[in-house]
Amino acid sequence: MKANEPGDHEEALRKVLKEWRVGAALPPRFQDGVWRRIEQAERAPAPIAPSAWAVIAHWIGTMVPRPALAASYVAILLAIGVTAGWAQAHRETRRVKNELRERYVRVLDPYQTPRR
C-alpha cells in the first residue's frame, strides 16, 4: 500500500525520465524548417473581421427564425401598417369632407362661386 503514495510515484517517474534516451536522429535541416514555419506564420495576414453583410446574413439565418423574435417582428410590422393606414385614411377623409364642405358653400354663394 505504501508504494502507491504520491511521493513514491514522483520518485519513480524522475528515475525513468533520467534513464530515458532518445535514440532517433532529427530529420535533416530540422531547425531551418522550424524557423521557416515561424516566419511564415508571422507573415500570414491577420484574420479578417467579418463584413457587415456577413453579420446581417448570419443574424437573419440564426436569429430571425426564432419563434418569439419572428412573431414579434410580424406583430410590430402589422401594428405599424394598421396605425399608418388608419392615420392616412383619417387625413384623407378629413380632406375630402373639407373639400365637399367648401364646395357646398361655393355652389350656394354667388360671391364664392368660381367664375369661368
Binding site: M63, G81, G85
Partner: peptide, 28 residues
C-alpha cells in the same frame, strides 16, 4: 427561412395598411 420571415412581415404590414386605409376611406 429568415428571409422568408422578413418578407412575410413586410407583406403583412403592407396588407394591413391597405386594408385599413380602404376600409376607413370607404365612406369618403
Amino acid at each position: 427561412k429568415g428571409v422568408l420571415i422578413l418578407v412575410f412581415g413586410l407583406v403583412a404590414g403592407a396588407a394591413a395598411y391597405a386594408c385599413i386605409y380602404f376600409a376607413c376611406t370607404a365612406s369618403a
